[in-house]
């Protein structure tokens, strides 16, 4: 499957980190690392609630805590593939979405991480759909723009 096809099929997020691939991969499966970044802005992922059994069929559980309101949101996923340090695949049990994280060694202690989100709502699977929305909805156009500019 080429990159182009991967992007046409799924939602993709890419980021380059200034760290060696082995370390970036460990960050994604070790609770001591995950607790520092797994919750998005304004949301914590307390260490004591992160459960990782990084092997196919193993669980990946967290409790997200809203810093402001204190709301707690448990999440649960099951690992599908753990191929250290290249690839990590897990399926969220609440949404049915599958995430594939690919770790590319760029040399020079830099690592590119691709996240592919599949089983996402069908509407956004192909470029026609994106083009259709881009011509009519400013918000969606902005979204598609951000997505393609994000690889830096």
């Amino acid at each position: 499957m080429t990159d182009q096809r991967a992007q046409a099929d799924t939602l993709t997020y890419t980021r380059v980190f200034s760290a060696p691939r082995e370390l970036v991969f460990r960050c994604m499966i070790e609770p001591e690392h995950l607790t520092h970044f797994w919750g998005p802005k304004g949301v914590s992922a307390p260490l004591e609630h992160i459960k990782v059994d990084a092997r196919p069929g193993g669980v990946f559980e967290t409790v997200m805590v809203d810093d402001a309101g204190g709301g707690r949101y448990p999440t649960r996923a099951v690992y599908v593939e753990v191929a250290e340090p290249e690839r990590l695949v897990w399926t969220e049990t609440h949404s049915g979405m599958t995430m594939t994280a690919t770790f590319v060694d760029l040399g020079d202690a830099r690592t590119e991480v691709h996240i592919r989100q599949t089983n996402v709502p069908e509407a956004f699977h192909n470029p026609q759909a994106q083009a259709g929305f881009a011509t009519s909805l400013d918000r969606f156009a902005a979204y598609v723009g951000n997505l393609s500019n994000e690889s830096g």
């Binding site: 997020y13 980190f17 200034s18 960050c27 520092h36 919750g39 918000r139």
Partner: peptide, 29 residues
């Protein structure tokens, strides 16, 4: 909008998560 919001929130989650990971890696370094 509900559909578009869902997509945007999903993207925002990863963006913010990666921002934090970037910072975490910097601290480790």
């Amino acid at each position: 909008d509900a559909a578009v919001d869902w997509i945007e929130e999903s993207r925002r989650t990863w963006t913010e998560r990666f921002d934090k990971l970037d910072e975490h890696l910097r601290e480790l370094h």
